[in-house]
Design a protein around this nucleic acid. Structure first.
Lengths: 339, 339
DNA sequence: AATTGCTGCTAAAACCTTTTAGATATGGGA
DNA sequence: TCCCATATCTAAAAGGTTTTAGCAGCAATT
């Protein structure tokens, strides 16, 4: 059963497709179609249950009313939540969203960008992987509306919305120090990405400023693509080797989870044996026992501002995206209380 | 800067677009294009960095290589995880996925189906809302490949993959009874959807079979669209009224979360004051303290089988989707242990 | 010499819209 | 009577691809 097209309506009313198109696009007045004919056409469209073929429209106009959202992993709470916000915000402006996960894999990310380009996205929101700078640059050259999110390339002139990672880490670690912890480890991922470097610098500087000696043995970097169990084992052996650790700062939510599992495996009590603060909030951290102190990102705001900036670029063709830096908030819970 | 098209390649090589299309679609042999010309064209395509316009292709072929995935809420762990599995599986078959959330809102769901239809999805995976039967029927009439997921309409002849909800609930409640709990409440949502009814029947039958008297006062139905805090308050006032409750069975993951929060608010200890088993697994249930016993759904399998069945329908035009019912697994943790 | 069959390629239509550049008809003014 | 302005509508192109139907050229067969 074929879909009804504009042609069917035209035939039904006995009029040209041009006229139908004008009416259906609300240009009846502008194009001086008589009120009478206009109503006839509208009625016919409703009666035949006409639905415009967006593909054909997309081909003709070059616009798909679809945004591409590239995240690291849609099953991670942070990105899932972000995706929902983006979906909702985009919807408000009449846009749909196509989601993709890179798994932080460079090749996959590149091919995703190609794929989305082939599908003529009107704009892009991207959590870039390390090697994606080239593709981002291409998008910019073609002056596609684009916002980076969560992280960015300092050398590229793209819009982005990120948080003050340095500050988040700095506050968290400073708080741990003030609570009396002395040997604060950091569990982070092996990555040269700007957001991770900033978090690391925040940790280092906080130690420095409070005259706590930093010890390279207390820095644990975990490969990004390690499987869950392997990652937990890494944490466990790290904790076994570095007995003096009395607090840990984790730079992502999943590292926080690994660390909790590791500590539990070793029978260490939080916060009595080891204090803990991690980046990103979720239900486990909020409701687990003990509850976990976190550096929470304003996910809703991040998503909203990214979409807003993107839509802005879409409307005002000229503008290059703005650089937006939001503040994270340190949420103190049980895991960082020195006994 | 315009994208290079097949025409540009044709001009560049001095040949017709037909030939280029044949070669680029790997039909060189079949269409008897000489090896020499074929290579020339391939080289030119690479050199000009040609990328096929999927919109144009979609218009011509009527196929977009895109699947529509409609879930309840992409930010819910269950659906986020499912989305990831679907994304990965679809990718293996060369398909992209467009995600949408219904928020269990009927109107939104209907308009999402329309939207995806307008965008010519090749197939649909849908978590239907109550009122969506009509739209589903339409899709079936137009013989669009379609799989329902998580729930289905018994009266419709659509394919689906679901779990044995009755069994999951039955096992959970039976286990609570065997642990010695006597006054087992159920916290569920107000819904006539088949999966919820099944879970409720499982609860009822388990009580019956073990000769535990069922008490309508121990049944708490919560509106789906209640905000987080309001829902928690509902649970709290329910627990306050029904003092005799010594165990609770929650029929969804978020109801489990509400209940944990409610119990904590009241200072009730799990499992000593109140035992708890909830549907769906997540990190909070797994790693929280106490850890929570759950009826876990095989999310990976659900996603895989749905995509597989869908692809099958796409290939073998004729087949109507199969009815797949998977078994949930009861994972016993600390929350259901009678002291 | 005419037919057949093969090889290697192409013209043009089709998919459904939007949009540009008119066409036609009517009435009014010179 | 002729021209112009206005109102109302339309033909046709364009967007990029796939695909059907078929064309030319040549060798082999009758």
């Amino acid at each position: 059963m074929k879909n009804v097209s504009i042609k069917d309506i035209a035939r039904y009313v006995g009029v040209s497709t041009t006229t139908v198109s004008f009416v259906l696009n609300g240009k009846a007045k502008e194009k001086r179609i008589s009120e009478e004919l206009k109503n006839k056409i509208l009625k016919a469209a409703a009666k035949l249950n006409y639905r415009p073929n967006q593909i054909a429209r997309g081909l003709r106009t070059g616009t798909t009313h679809t945004l591409g959202l590239i995240v690291e992993d849609i099953s991670n709470h942070f990105f899932a939540h972000l995706a929902k916000v983006v979906e909702d915000e985009a919807d408000k402006h009449g846009y749909k969203v196509m989601f993709c996960s890179t798994e932080n894999n460079e090749e996959k990310a590149v091919s995703l960008v190609h794929l989305l380009k082939n599908r003529q996205m009107d704009g892009y929101i991207i959590t870039p992987t390390p090697g994606l700078a080239g593709e981002i640059e291409n998008l910019l050259k073609e002056s596609k509306p684009l916002m980076l999110i969560d992280r960015y390339f300092p050398e590229l002139d793209s819009g982005y919305v990120a948080i003050d990672n340095y500050r988040g880490a700095h506050e968290a670690v400073s708080f741990l120090i003030k609570q009396g912890y002395q040997n604060i480890a950091i569990v982070t991922i092996e990555s040269e990405q700007v957001q991770m470097l900033d978090r690391y610098r925040g940790y280092e500087d906080a130690l420095l400023e409070h005259r706590v000696e930093s010890d390279p043995h207390l820095v644990k970097k975990i490969q990004f693509d390690l499987a869950h169990d392997a990652a937990v084992r890494e944490v466990v052996s790290f904790l076994q080797k570095q007995k003096k650790i009395d607090a840990i700062f984790c730079t992502t939510n999943y590292l926080g989870v690994y660390t909790i599992e590791g500590l539990r495996h070793l029978g260490k009590k939080i916060p009595d044996d080891v204090g803990l603060i991690t980046f990103d909030d979720n239900e486990l951290f909020r409701l687990g026992s003990p509850s976990i102190s976190v550096v929470a990102q304003p996910i809703e705001k991040i998503g909203k501002m990214a979409v807003e900036a993107l839509i802005d670029q879409l409307k005002n063709k000229t503008k290059r995206g703005s650089h937006i830096v939001l503040n994270p908030s340190l949420i103190i819970r049980e895991s960082s209380r020195q006994q």
